[in-house]
Design a protein around this nucleic acid. Structure first.
Lengths: 196, 196
DNA sequence: CGCTATTGATAAGA
DNA sequence: TCTTATCAATAGCG
């Protein structure tokens, strides 16, 4: 048998749909439960899982050409952010003065392809990234620099904590840009023919 | 041997750090590459990966008690959103009129524990969810209803597409709330003692 | 839409 | 911090 037939479909459904909080679990979840005993581990878990989420997000964005933005507040209140492949689309669209530079064309196909090619052809992204950084706003640059020093992976990675109190509001405005973007989509949505 | 020692650390590092776009890949990525041949699969991939991301986000939020919000724009321009365990924290904080109801206390511990207990003790969340929904704003309710009809998993799942053009702006304002929240964190950040 | 095989993510340990 | 064992996520296919 490949897997036990659902004995209690409803319950199992509910349990499976939920994040593995453990209890009737039997594998790794059991270990995750022990986390409560070692509170120190939680921070590790958070970082690791955040990294995992970042990676998943990057995969989704790159593989499916989706623009995305994630903002996470840790329990301690620290803010972390992750933006679509193009910094210009989420982070860079906000100037240091807080003015929106562009309506965010939802990331041009050119950028996507460039990024894809970049990822496929060479592993030495540093140069290209730096070149892109030149076209970014001051904050965008700062982000890249800080991330590089922190040993982070790419420029989409923007840990708000690393930015400092000065740049954080700028990111906040970038979020507002995102909000406007959402709003625009709301307007553009004609009658939602529901293709599916 | 459990696993081959890194032959080319740098290259491998670069490859591993990047989303698996394939090329010199040899396992699953090879298949992912074939995606370009079958464009139809991309949508499937998007949905699947989005679900995965949702799940990861839920795990991160629940396990580490982190508040998070994700907004994804598919290539087609469709918007999808995912919010922290408490709808009140991200979605429900915006009234139908667009007024912020509360400063979003970053989700009370009470809510967290309640949610955790809820997840652990019983699989029948529907009732509790409905009860929670009663306390939500009109839009929040709508979200729950729509999600239920669409066969979605939980109330954190909020596909903007399903909301329709009327409710979408409301979510946009919710995003603004998030922005303000970020801003507040910027202010609260005293000198960033960098605990780590 | 669900199944299966493969890789990836991650919690614990050193 | 890095490694390892274990389970989960997911691409392809029926």
């Amino acid at each position: 048998m490949t897997q036990p037939p659902r004995l209690a479909p409803l319950v199992e459904q509910a349990t499976k749909t939920l994040p593995p909080l453990g209890k009737k679990t039997k594998g790794r979840q059991r270990r995750e439960n022990r986390r409560v005993e070692k509170k120190e581990s939680r921070q590790v878990t958070f970082s690791k899982r955040k990294s995992g989420l970042w990676k998943k997000a990057a995969e989704l964005a790159l593989l499916c050409r989706a623009s995305l933005a994630i903002v996470v507040f840790s329990e301690a209140g620290k803010a972390f952010a992750f933006g679509s492949p193009s910094t210009d689309a989420v982070l860079g669209c906000a100037d240091v003065d807080g003015n929106a530079l562009a309506p965010v064309p939802a990331a041009d196909d050119v950028e996507w392809e460039a990024l894809e090619t970049l990822c496929q052809e060479t592993g030495a992204m540093g140069v290209e990234v730096a070149a892109e950084a030149e076209r970014m706003s001051a904050v965008g640059k700062k982000v890249v620099e800080v991330q590089a020093q922190a040993g982070k992976r790419f420029w989409w990675e923007a840990d708000v904590e690393a930015l400092g109190e000065a740049e954080l509001p700028v990111f906040a405005r970038a979020l507002q840009r995102l909000r406007d973007n959402v709003r625009r989509h709301a307007d553009k949505m004609p009658s939602a023919p529901q293709p599916q």
